[in-house]
């Protein structure tokens, strides 16, 4: 942290990644509750791209798929088989398939804007999207549990799982309640957002360092810019992987939470 700080304070040429980058200046409606900034523009572009690709694929969908349709079906099939049906089973999963699919593709699209040149900021790196999706999951698993067991039945099932010595419930029951009220949705939000923020900061750090070392540092330091550039490239590829991974984790945890609510009474 210290060299970073020194660089930030000492030489104006080195751009230091900061939290404020996730809150760019307003483009429209600045200062109102409907402020619209670059991040939201990025999200809109991601939404347009996502919907264009999938609607186009849906319009052209045929029984015998072409390459484009096969690629889209690969994504949809991955969500259906490897996430929803794997966790919930075919019968139960059918009801939640559209929800989980929407969550997966939305997060994937918004994550990927972080590595797309020109956008360079993940749509999920500020928690708004993640919070709304987590709330959706929250409502879904509560609704599933209450519909299956009734309100108190769901609470009893969750807070007092069988096969545990009675005194343990003193600790277990509040923890379980905290789980379904706060920890589950909060962990979904924090995991996703923190990953995207960290990824963005690493990328900015690498590319800013490359820029600084190559153009402004002394000749003996210029060589190091190759190292930071290679690091930036590696982290870019890593971020593509993380974008998919985080979408997968969010979707599979959402499926798991809903599925837990639907477990048979013990």
């Amino acid at each position: 942290m210290t060299p970073l700080l020194l660089a930030a304070e000492g030489e104006g040429g080195f751009h230091v990644p900061s939290i404020s980058e996730f809150f760019p200046a307003a483009i429209l409606f600045g200062g109102t509750p409907f402020e619209f900034n670059r991040l939201h523009l990025i999200r809109i572009l991601a939404t347009i791209a996502l919907l264009t690709i999938f609607v186009l694929a849906a319009r052209r969908a045929k029984v015998v798929p072409g390459r484009f349709q096969a690629a889209i079906e690969l994504v949809l099939g991955f969500v259906r088989k490897n996430i929803v049906e794997e966790v919930m089973g075919v019968e139960r999963g059918r009801r939640y398939l559209p929800m989980i699919t929407t969550i997966f593709v939305t997060i994937l699209a918004f994550n990927l804007t972080g590595v797309i040149p020109g956008l360079n900021l993940a749509g999920t790196s500020v928690a708004g999207v993640a919070i709304l999706l987590a709330l959706w999951v929250f409502v879904a698993y509560w609704a599933a549990g209450i519909r299956k067991h009734g309100f108190f039945g769901y609470l009893r099932n969750t807070m007092f799982p069988p096969g545990i010595p009675a005194p343990i419930y003193v600790i277990l029951a509040p923890i379980e309640l905290l789980q379904i009220l706060i920890i589950r949705p909060a962990s979904l939000v924090i995991r996703l957002t923190a990953n995207m923020v960290a990824g963005h900061i690493m990328l900015v750090l690498c590319f800013a360092a490359t820029h600084f070392l190559l153009l402004e540092a002394g000749p003996e330091l210029k060589v190091l810019s190759a190292l930071t550039l290679a690091g930036g490239l590696a982290i870019t590829l890593f971020e593509v992987f993380v974008a998919g991974l985080q979408a997968y984790i969010f979707a599979i945890l959402a499926s798991a939470y809903i599925n837990m609510s639907l477990e048979e009474e013990h």
Partner: peptide
């Protein structure tokens, strides 16, 4: 970042509903 201001929720909600 984790508890964004209202406008972030607002624009997110519109896009999510659309999607």
């Amino acid at each position: 970042l984790f508890l964004p201001p209202f406008y972030d929720w607002f624009w997110s909600a519109i896009l999510l509903v659309l999607i």
